[in-house]
Design a protein around this nucleic acid. Structure first.
Length: 896
RNA sequence: GCUCGGGUGGUGGAAUUGGUAGACACGUUGGACUUAAAAUCCAAUGAGCAGUAAUGUUCGUGCGGGUUCAAGUCCCGCCCCGAGUACCA
């Protein structure tokens, strides 16, 4: 008989909600702890079993910290602007607001069913105008700030020193060129299928991150954020963060700092080609230059004889999409300009070429090619038969050597170490005014506008080309109603359809509104600040409250946001910090990535060009096509319920199923999603086993940061553990405990689990804590423990993992308060040492114990325990102890 | 290609960081209860060999070497899988 989890769980969920048990206090004498989840996008499918993984982990930490005496803030909200709601709106004509709100209700309900300890009084939605008012306000802060190179921080635009004696127009231009949010006509990533521009971070291998549609480069007028000014600080401050190394590394790579030199190559008296290189030491091996096809110098220096060929080449490459450009990676293409430049060191004449393997967007858009020591240059030189000169000794067995070595073929400098020579070259060129030390970044400015409906409107007005920012009183600038949410192919925003909204009178003047919207990342750049003070009408959050709670002590979410959300949020936060609006330079102190829970998709196979579906066991020799089927149509042994399938989908009524005994499907592990028909909802599990079981099971599945396929087969083990726990303190269905003092064996078992759980939670090793509980309950069962004290402490210990059952047992013990703020139990070292010395490690006549001393016991106390323990006697074999040697923290040698 | 992770029973995964390898759970097998099934409980369960048995013994953490009294863990050289990234000069 299982305990009545349905009744118990509902009861406690209501109790927590009604009594606001998890309400965080903004001024408390307790130390604070801010636990944050990456808030979800409320999709139409609701939660699947993968979502709660991170939420359960953060909830365990929240509850643990509460029991440890911290004032815990654990809020939740919704990142409710975004593409899917809009795409759904385009399809059905329903307002995205309506569907989003419906989805949020469903999400909240599902979250509450899991017993998560959120402070719902602080709920926020990014699409709520009370929220995006402040997103717009921060946007204007960025618009009205510039980066002061000397102070190395952002400053209000009023402090900017503007050159005098220039026209008003020039002045405006100058100011605009310094703003952190600025407008520029630049080559952007245009995705026609999505009808919008995308940030560099949202393009992966020439395809859109969302949907995988082709992206082309196209010059457009866009709002851009000057994130590049922060490149160095975003890089350096990573060192102090407790983040997974892999995430730090991704951010480092994305920022892509490289140190080298910028060198001028003279073409004629008037013109020179400037290049960036990290290898100035190879300058004697630079035998030609290459310009990107977009390079502005090309029309100036090209000889008339080659003009036709060059124009054709430039035209060709401009037609290529990013994807096509990458595909042609293997074979290099290019044309000769007919012009030459002078190598400032070797004084040799170098031909200038044009090729698309040089990117205009990186460095100076031009390179000095050193074919002997750079693989791309080598390939190009081979193809076009250009000179290859070795200038570094080493790698004789390869055609192209990229390592270090002694300098050769470099006139007076031969024999030097190449790293040494690097410095000499830069010094020499600096004196000649032909070059300088230079740092380059891969990071580009953040393209900020989207040509979409369902996002924050940008609070800017236009009077022709002249911009005017809205004032505080004008915020929020609410999203207008439009006839159609459909994006346009020409790149204008759906907001432009509402003509009444677009034209506006202000101070007796006619203006037009900006019609683009902000990207989805905008709302999530600062939401963790709004949670601190969500109802504040006068500021985005009160300064004292910010000072109390920030930074976020623990941030839990998926690793897929490594360079998107996490980089943008850090950038905004640093701007707010520079403007003294927040008190920390980094928002998230510790970051933990939960792994993804994958789905176990099922497939049926159609024989190509027929209407026959063949069972997977008979598939050999057939060419087939895989089609997803809903996993609810399939049993554990991979048998397909054909009737059920045909009933739910009439498409399959007229097809022929070929099989022997039963129709077998094939399986594959994939990301969980509606389109793959492999979604498992937590609701069914909660109904069948309860939320406590689901919580424990998800934690038991494996290490929190690991991705793993969902598989329900082991859930009975966790479920029966909870029942054992319940039944241990029940006799014939009645609650049954006693006041007896627990014996040593019980205490040993109890202290073992206390220690394990304490250290495991700190290390995010939740799977092993669950195991430790199971062992403990098994041991206590066989020892027949019914001790009141033990139960009380076990309830507190287990409550972060399985809060409902613990609250119930806690109240059965006669307690009136929620368990949520009870003191977390601590272990007694004495009992642990005894169990550790039961298994000594011995060799060479010495008896050794491996004991992890955690300092609460003194050395002589440990000695006494060892001397008096029965198992010591057994291992000593009649010898007596002469000496006990303590090696710090690790092994104890007993010499006999 | 480069950069990170990671390879342990039939499965998910433990192993106090160099000290009993396989905790815990699933699965499987056998047993108890039951008219029967479900549920529950008990026992066995890395592989091999010997033994009626208790037990003994050999092999065993992707492969090949090495360091050490002792290696899943450290070092060297390979193989495979996963993730990220991609002409960044």
């Amino acid at each position: 008989m299982s305990y009545n989890f349905l009744e118990i769980e509902k009861k406690w969920q209501n109790y927590w909600l009604e009594n606001k048990v998890f309400k965080a206090n903004d001024n408390s004498h307790k130390p604070k702890y801010y636990v944050l989840d990456m808030f979800p996008y409320p999709s139409g499918t609701g939660l699947h079993v993968g979502h709660p993984l991170g939420y359960i982990a953060s909830d365990i930490i929240s509850r643990f910290k509460r029991n440890k005496g911290f004032n815990v803030l654990h809020p939740m909200g919704f990142d409710s602007f975004g593409l899917p709601a809009e795409q759904y709106a385009v399809k059905t004509g329903q307002h995205p607001k309506t569907t989003t709100e419906k989805n949020i209700v469903r999400f909240k309900d599902q979250l509450d069913n899991l017993g998560l300890s959120f402070d719902w009084d602080r709920e926020i939605k990014t699409s709520d105008s009370n929220y995006y008012k402040w997103t717009q306000w921060i946007f204007l802060k960025l618009y009205n700030s510039y980066y002061d190179e000397k102070l190395n921080k952002a400053q209000p635009i009023e402090k900017l020193k503007i050159p005098t004696n220039i026209s008003q127009e020039k002045m405006d231009e100058f100011i605009d060129s310094k703003r952190l949010a600025y407008v520029d006509v630049i080559d952007v990533n245009w995705c026609e299928e999505l009808g919008t521009v995308l940030a560099n971070e949202e393009v992966i291998g020439g395809l859109s991150e969302r949907g995988g549609f082709p992206v082309v480069k196209k010059p457009m007028r866009q709002w851009v954020m000057r994130i590049t000014d922060y490149a160095d600080r975003l890089l350096e401050d990573l060192d102090d963060l407790e983040w997974p190394e892999s995430i730090k590394l991704s951010q480092k790579n994305w920022i892509g700092k490289s140190e080298g030199a910028q060198i001028k190559f003279e073409v004629n008296k008037k013109n020179f080609v400037e290049v960036f290189t990290t290898r100035p030491d190879t300058i004697y091996g630079a035998t030609y230059l290459v310009l990107a096809p977009e390079h502005p110098l090309i029309p100036i220096i090209t000889s008339t004889t080659n003009k036709k060929e060059i124009d054709q080449y430039i035209h060709q490459t401009s037609m290529k999409s990013d994807l096509e450009r990458q595909e042609s990676e293997k074979s290099k293409t290019g044309v000769f300009t007919g012009a030459y430049a002078l190598n400032p060191m070797s004084k040799k004449k170098m031909p200038i070429w044009i090729s698309d393997y040089v990117l205009y967007s990186y460095g100076t858009g031009a390179i000095m090619a050193v074919p002997a020591h750079d693989e791309r240059d080598y390939e190009f030189a081979k193809k076009f038969n250009l000179e290859i000169t070795r200038v570094i000794e080493g790698g004789e067995d390869v055609d192209c050597y990229t390592g270090d070595g002694k300098i050769i073929n470099s006139e007076n400098y031969n024999g030097l170490d190449n790293q040494e020579f690097k410095i000499i070259v830069v010094d020499f060129l600096e004196k000649q005014k032909k070059g300088e030390k230079k740092v380059n970044y891969k990071l580009r400015d953040w393209i900020f506008t989207r040509q979409r409906y369902w996002g924050e409107p940008i609070p800017i007005l236009y009077d022709g080309e002249k911009k005017k920012d809205l004032e505080y009183e004008d915020l929020p600038l609410k999203l207008p109603e439009v006839e159609s949410y459909l994006p346009t192919k020409d790149g204008s925003s759906p907001l432009a359809r509402n003509k009444n909204w677009v034209s506006v009178q202000k101070d007796g003047k006619e203006y037009l509104r900006e019609t683009n919207t902000m990207p989805q990342w905008a709302g999530s750049c600062w939401y963790f600040l709004r949670f601190l003070d969500p109802l504040n009408d006068n500021e985005f959050a009160n300064k004292d409250i910010i000072k109390y709670w920030m930074p976020v002590d623990l941030y839990i979410g998926g690793a897929e946001h490594a360079v998107l959300h996490l980089l943008y949020a850090r950038f905004w936060h640093k701007v707010l910090f520079d403007l003294s609006l927040v008190n920390t330079s980094e928002p998230f102190k510790k970051l933990v990535n939960q792994g993804m829970i994958l789905g176990n998709s099922a497939f049926i196979h159609r024989i190509k060009n027929t209407n026959d579906f063949i069972s997977f066991d008979l598939i050999k020799g057939h060419e087939t096509q895989k089609i997803h089927v809903d996993i609810s149509m399939v049993d554990e042994k991979n048998n397909l319920d054909i009737k059920k399938l045909q009933k739910s989908n009439p498409e399959f009524e007229d097809v022929n199923f070929v099989y022997e005994k039963s129709f077998i499907v094939s399986r594959d592990i994939e990301k969980m999603s509606k389109s793959r028909y492999n979604v498992v909802s937590p609701d069914e599990i909660c109904k069948k086993y309860g939320a406590d079981t689901l919580r424990l099971y998800e934690m038991f599945l494996g290490p929190i940061d690991q991705s793993k396929p969902w598989n329900t087969s082991g859930i009975t083990g966790v479920f029966s553990f909870l029942n054992k726990f319940w039944n241990l303190f029940h006799t014939n269905g009645k609650f049954h405990v006693n006041d007896e003092k627990p014996n040593d064996q019980i205490l040993k078992s109890y202290h073992k689990v206390v220690k394990k759980v304490n250290s495991d939670i700190e290390n995010f090793s939740f799977n092993t804590s669950v195991s430790a509980f199971m062992i403990c309950i098994n041991e206590l069962s066989s020892l027949g423990c019914k001790s009141k004290d033990i139960l009380a402490n076990l309830c507190i210990l287990l409550s972060p993992f399985a809060p409902h059952i613990c609250e119930e047992l806690w109240s059965l013990l006669g307690n009136k308060n929620s368990i949520s703020y009870e003191k977390f139990p601590m272990h007694d070292e004495k009992y642990l040492i005894e169990s550790m010395i039961e298994y000594p490690v011995s060799f060479n006549g010495k008896l050794r114990f491996k004991i992890n001393l955690s300092a609460s016991l003194k050395q002589n106390e440990v000695e006494d325990i060892i001397k008096n323990h029965q198992s010591t006697e057994k291992y000593l074999n009649g010898n007596s102890i002469k000496k006990i040697i303590f090696v710090p923290k690790k092994i104890i040698n007993v010499v006999c």
